[in-house]
Computed example of a mutant assay.
Amino acid sequence: MTRQHHLKGVLLASIACILWGISGVAASTIFQLNSQITALWLTQVRMISAGIILLVMGQVMGVKPTKIWRNRQDSLRLVSYGLLGLVPVQLCYFEAVKYGNAPIATIIQFLGPFIISIYFFLFKHVTPQRSEAIGMIMAFIGTLLIVTHGHLTSLAISPVVLFWGGLSAIGVATNTLIPRPLLQKYGSMTITGWGLLVAGVCLTIFKPLWQVHVQLTGMEISLLLVIIILGTVFPFLMFANSLSYILPTTASLLDAFEPLAATIFSITFLNVQLTGFDLFGGSLIILAVMALSLNVRKMMRLLHRRRTD
């Protein structure tokens, strides 16, 4: 692997994470502009549109995305990925953005890797490394600062934001763990495309898109396209492509660009006011997740060794 390839991978993963952060800011803007738009409606449009685009691209590129439906077990896992992984990581995130703001929602969602670590500890009996334990403490302190602003007897953010943000963090964990066996077998374009489409279609059970009449201005349509194309299709493809040049652990470290981008763009373009507690707490969480990411490979090797013993 040459230095240029490594740099290409870093740039692809970094830009993908920045685009995800911008997507949250675009969603926050569209919620402010149009009260008719709900998090459910936006998630349905985003998932169905992006899913169709990815699957059509896969078919054109000869990936044969329909092949997965011939295997019953893989099909069930794919549906689980859509409903238990993508729905919470996107719908719950948009709910947190709507009731709060993009930076806080993204930072809370960023706690997802610690839920993965807890899962491995409880169900796979993988003992956390010292750096992981320190990271968990840092993340807990950071979250406490954001939630209370130093006043332990009261909440500084709405419980609704904390609820939806917490569910989106759990979604990050399930979104990472559930599709792992499928990705190597079918590729990220097929799994992501079908996962998005299945999840989006299933969400129409709660409120069919054709029963919701939303009038959109030119600006709102532009923001919707940003969320679908720049905030979903492009970053998923770029992040998946980056893994051909860099290690997954390196890519996961670059995830820190997502909350950073959401914070910078929200402050710059939406005049979102963040306190020193929010900034310091968010910084602690980002540093903690980066420390955790350094031990992901050790965790996976230990788990693989225990499976083969």
Rank of each mutant, 00 (worst) to 15 (best):
Ala105Trp: 05
Ile116Glu: 08
Ile205Met: 12
Leu230Asn: 06
Tyr245Thr: 02
Phe239Met: 13
Arg180His: 10
Ala16Tyr: 07
Val63Gln: 10
Ile48Pro: 01
Gly51Lys: 01
Leu223Trp: 07
Leu12Asp: 08
Arg130Gly: 01
Thr153Pro: 00
Gly187Val: 09
Val89Ile: 15
Met136Asn: 01
Leu224Ile: 14
Met61Asn: 14
Thr308Ser: 10
Gln109Tyr: 14
His151Lys: 11
Leu177Gln: 07
Ile30Tyr: 02
Leu279Ala: 09
Arg307Lys: 12
Gly200Glu: 05
Val63Gly: 00
Ile267Ser: 05
Gly82Gln: 01
Thr43Arg: 02
Gln211Cys: 09
Met57Cys: 13
Tyr93Leu: 15
Trp69Ile: 00
Thr176Asp: 03
Thr232Asn: 12
Phe280Pro: 01
Met136Cys: 09
Ile146Glu: 07
Val226Leu: 15
Leu287Trp: 05
Gln32Asp: 15
Lys185Glu: 11
Tyr245Met: 03
Val296Thr: 14
Ala261Gln: 02
Met136Phe: 14
Gln44Arg: 05
Leu144Ala: 13
Leu86Cys: 03
Ile267Glu: 07
Val272Ala: 10
Gln184Asn: 15
Pro88Tyr: 07
Ile30Phe: 04
Phe234Trp: 14
Val289Leu: 03
Leu155Glu: 11
Gly166Pro: 12
Leu270Tyr: 07
Gly142Asp: 10
Pro181Gln: 06
Leu224Cys: 13
Trp210Arg: 03
Leu260Phe: 10
Gly171Asn: 06
Ile107Gln: 03
Ile22Ala: 15
Asp278Val: 04
Gly9Trp: 05
Trp210His: 14
Phe121Val: 11
Ser283Leu: 15
Leu253Asn: 14
Val212Leu: 12
Pro259Met: 06
Gln36Pro: 02
Ala139Lys: 04
Ile229Thr: 06
Tyr119Val: 15
Leu274Ser: 07
Thr232Ala: 10
Val212Arg: 05
His5Ile: 03
Arg70Thr: 09
Leu177His: 08
Met300Gln: 12
Phe140Pro: 00
Ser293Gln: 10
Ile118Thr: 14
Trp164Phe: 15
Thr204Ser: 07
